[in-house]
């Protein structure tokens, strides 16, 4: 006979198998690998404690938890950075930006990333959630706590702003494919 704790663990495993890869990808796109691993672990602990509240689609819910945990981790990092400065330590606290273009490469990837970086953070994040994390508008609505209609409107505006940025002088026109760039 399966005991209650066994059942609970089985429930957790079922949820984790559903959310772990989307959450990992979400985190690894936004921070360094070590922080992503730490935050993934913290996210699963929160998920375990809130197992009774898991919604029908746990993916946006779990990403929402990861998002908050990552924000906490980043705040902690900033605080350690200030302490390091105060005590005159020189250890590097900066984290490589995974969206940083490869040095010297001015291909369309770099152009798009640069344009994305000039958008308002909320617009850029919305576009990332839909295209990089492949969330549906319904899932984004769940994650952000807004209506699907509001997501669609914001997405429309964000795409418009990105088009504007890509149309600015200095932004290379789309070559139609991912170019190799020149050094």
């Amino acid at each position: 006979m399966r005991t209650a704790p066994d059942q609970r663990r089985a429930d957790l495993e079922r949820v984790v198998r559903t959310v772990v890869e989307p959450v990992r990808r979400y985190l690894h796109r936004r921070t360094d690998a070590a922080t992503a691993d730490d935050v993934l672990g913290e996210t699963l602990v929160v998920l375990w404690r809130r197992l009774d509240y898991v919604p029908a689609d746990p993916v946006p819910w779990a990403i929402g938890i990861a998002r908050l945990q990552l924000a906490n981790a980043e705040r902690g990092r900033h605080r350690r950075g200030r302490l390091a400065l105060r005590f005159g330590r020189t250890e590097a606290t900066a984290v490589p930006d995974p969206t940083e273009p490869v040095a010297g490469r001015l291909d369309d990837v770099a152009v798009v990333r640069a344009a994305l970086g000039r958008l308002r953070p909320a617009d850029a994040e919305l576009l990332r959630l839909v295209t990089w994390d492949e969330l549906t508008t319904g899932q984004v609505a769940e994650l952000l706590g807004i209506t699907t209609n509001a997501v669609a409107i914001r997405l429309h505006r964000a795409r418009g702003r990105l088009r504007e940025e890509l149309g600015r002088p200095g932004a290379r026109p789309d070559t139609g494919q991912r170019g190799e760039g020149t050094p």
């Binding site: 690894h28 369309d108 798009v112 295209t131 990089w132 795409r159 990105l162 088009r163 890509l166 789309d174």
Partner: peptide, 16 residues
């Protein structure tokens, strides 16, 4: 540029 074109460029810029 259609939404599909824009999304394709965005996906190509996915760092991961």
């Amino acid at each position: 540029m259609t939404d599909d074109d824009l999304d394709r460029r965005l996906r190509a810029a996915d760092p991961l």
